[in-house]
């Protein structure tokens, strides 16, 4: 059992690396691939409707504060965030760890209540989690007693979608995140990177309007992280989902995003909004481009400034 898994892993990593190196996600071989309901031709520009006015997400003056239940002390985490994310846009939030960026993401997910302002997704105010949004947490948090397939269909199952239909939909996404062949493995038998792929597939299969990524590769080793970033880039270029990602990896944010928001230290406000004007699909050598390095330096300086102000560095 273990030997066969290891063989698969050995196979999976180089395959993923080549797909990433070409800069383009290569869909699985035609014979074995499942049709994806959302699939568009690679490189095709976003449809005309994808403008700022057709916002997938709109935050106006959003504040979040935590109240300590025993002392009654109120700690502001996020203050006065204005943000609009267009349909099909990939937006990242970068900032120091603990600056409140995850709080903001949790508010969009509907897991944390906001204390001020308005937060609207698809025209509807956010009050609780909903099938229009799906979260990928930093830790895979898979249900250990379910197989890969059982975990991928978890969201669909909660929505009351019949098992047969759920399995049919899951098959396409299991291929997309390159988990074909390990569907019936339990999470304990998977590496951290593989588990995170399951986590990603579990969110994607729900076909949410907005995909929320909370430091999705933060718990992975450097090599796996690099591979997964490139795969996510490929997946995004295939699916063109609206994505809001929180990260503290500056290069990760630049590689993937259309736009980057730099958050200040707690309570978080938007320090700067940076449009990433790198070509799509991102070329294989994107990280070596002067424009990439310039952006990286600029964001790094912004973050350093806020950190210095608070004596954090």
């Amino acid at each position: 059992m273990f030997r066969s898994l290891k063989a698969r892993l050995d196979f999976a990593v180089p395959a993923a690396a080549t797909a990433g190196a070409s800069g383009l996600y290569r869909p699985p071989v035609a014979g074995t691939s499942h049709a994806l309901p959302f699939q568009r031709q690679g490189g095709e520009p976003a449809p005309a409707g994808a403008s700022r006015s057709n916002g997938a997400l709109a935050a106006t003056g959003v504040s979040i504060a935590y109240t300590n239940s025993s002392t009654g002390e109120v700690t502001p985490a996020v203050s006065q965030i204005d943000l609009t994310v267009a349909k099909g846009e990939f937006v990242s939030i970068v900032g120091l760890s603990g600056c409140g960026k995850s709080s903001f993401l949790n508010a969009v997910a509907g897991l944390t209540a906001i204390s001020g302002g308005t937060l609207v997704a698809g025209g509807v105010p956010i009050t609780r989690p909903g099938p229009d949004r799906a979260v990928v947490f930093q830790r895979p948090s898979l249900l250990p007693w379910r197989t890969v397939l059982g975990n991928v269909i978890y969201g669909l199952e909660l929505q009351g979608i019949p098992k047969r239909e759920a399995h049919r939909r899951a098959a396409a996404y299991i291929d997309l995140v390159q988990l074909g062949g390990v569907e019936h493995f339990y999470p304990a038998a998977l590496s951290g990177g593989m588990q995170q792929r399951v986590n990603l597939a579990r969110a994607l299969v729900c076909d949410p309007d907005i995909l929320l990524l909370d430091e999705p590769f933060g718990a992975l080793d450097a090599i796996t992280r690099e591979t997964m970033q490139k795969e996510l880039l490929g997946i995004w270029e295939t699916t063109r989902k609206t994505v809001l990602m929180v990260t503290h990896q500056i290069d990760e944010a630049i590689l993937l995003s259309d736009r980057i928001l730099v958050f200040s230290d707690r309570p978080a406000r938007i320090l700067a909004e940076i449009v990433v004007e790198l070509p799509r699909p991102r070329p294989a050598n994107v990280k070596a481009l002067p424009a990439f390095t310039r952006l990286e330096t600029r964001i790094w300086e912004l973050i350093q400034e806020t950190a210095r102000g608070r004596g954090r560095l």
């Binding site: 897991l111 609780r128 947490f137 249900l143 909660l158």
Partner: peptide, 14 residues
Amino acid sequence: IDRDLKRVGDAYGA
């Protein structure tokens, strides 16, 4: 019960 798993359930609208 693992808080992370509960949070996953919450996030998926359980």
